[in-house]
Structures are given as C-alpha cells and as structure tokens.
C-alpha cells in the first residue's frame, strides 16, 4: 500500500533543497501521489510548495478530471497563475470538456472590451457627496445620482426596493 503524502512532506520540501521533490516523486512512481501532494499543499495554503509540486507533474499525461481537480486545488492554495495556466493547458488538451472550457474563460487574463466610452462627469459630484456626508451614513447603503442622495437603507437589497431603475445611479455602502 502506497503512503499518501503528509503535511510534513511539503514542509520538508520548503526547508530543504527543492531538488528533493523530484526524487521523491520518482521513487513513488505514482502520478496519483503527485496530485495528492498538490492537495496537501493546498490544504496548507502553501503556494510555493504547490507551484513546485505542479512543476514536477507531466501534465500531458493527465486526464481532464485531473486538470479540473488541480485547478481547484491551485485556487485553494492561492496559486492563481498556476490555476490559469492549468486551465488553459487542460482546455487545449480537452477542447470538448465544458468545465475546462469554462475555467479557461473565467480565469483568462482580463481583456479590454471598449476603451472609447464617454466620460461620466457625475462621478465627481457623487464623490463630493460621500466626502461631505460619509460620517452621517456610516455602515448604510446609499443611492446617489448627480451628487444627490436618492435613497438610504441598511442593506443593498432594501435599497433596491426604493429604486425604480439603477441606470446612472451610484450604489455603495458607506465606510
């Protein structure tokens, strides 16, 4: 019966030479163990250990389900760039896998859609209102339009009930 990696294994990687990790994985010779290592790193919230373990895996041989699992673990470990790259790699290998396609779309780098939109002069008036009146409404939700208070409520959903529409209205909690 193979030994499942323990938290101590991950700590060991970080405190000793990083070159220890590949030899450990070769000794195990089990790709499942390498995913378990990712799980331990994610559980420890150890981004560096996660990145190191992910680098040692031959992803070209992994299933779509492994990619999905690894992306989720990367997010839990705080390894957000790894999550993005794994999602993209998995989606390239499995172009018909809906979950991997969705992951790739959601985690893709931000993209400018329109850069020629008109300015919104009311931004300054609303900020002036917040500068002047924030102290009176701390912790409450307010709706502002052109620097005037339209509605105030304890929650955003209560505020919504006071608004006929939300166009050109600033909705924010006052801190």
């Amino acid at each position: 019966m193979r030994r499942i990696p323990q938290k101590e294994d991950v700590r060991l990687q970080r405190t000793s030479s990083v070159s220890v990790l590949p030899s450990m994985l070769e000794t195990r010779g089990d790709q499942r163990d390498t995913l378990a290592m990712l799980e331990v790193a994610a559980d420890l919230n150890d981004e560096a250990a996660f990145v190191q373990a992910a680098r040692e895996i031959d992803w070209s041989q992994r299933s779509a389900a492994d990619f999905v699992r690894a992306v989720r673990l990367a997010l839990a470990a705080g390894a957000h760039l790894v999550a993005r790259h794994l999602a993209a790699q998995g989606a390239r290998l499995y172009p018909d896998h809906p979950e991997l396609q969705k992951m790739t779309h959601v985690l893709a780098p931000p993209r400018v859609v329109k850069a020629n939109l008109p300015p919104v002069p009311s931004v300054r008036a609303n900020q002036d209102w917040l500068r002047t009146h924030a102290g009176e409404y701390k912790g409450q939700w307010v709706a502002l339009q052109d620097g005037a208070l339209l509605a105030v409520a304890a929650t955003a959903s209560e505020l919504k009930a006071h608004l006929e529409n939300k166009d050109h209205i600033l909705v924010t909690k006052v801190f």
Partner: peptide
C-alpha cells in the same frame, strides 16, 4: 473604469 476626463474603459475581468 469611469473617467471624469478622457474616456471610460470597459474590461472583462475575473
């Protein structure tokens, strides 16, 4: 991102 001067800019983000 709402501009007071120049142009506002729309992006898709995570």
């Amino acid at each position: 991102l709402l501009a007071e001067q120049g142009q506002s800019l729309e992006l898709e983000a995570t």
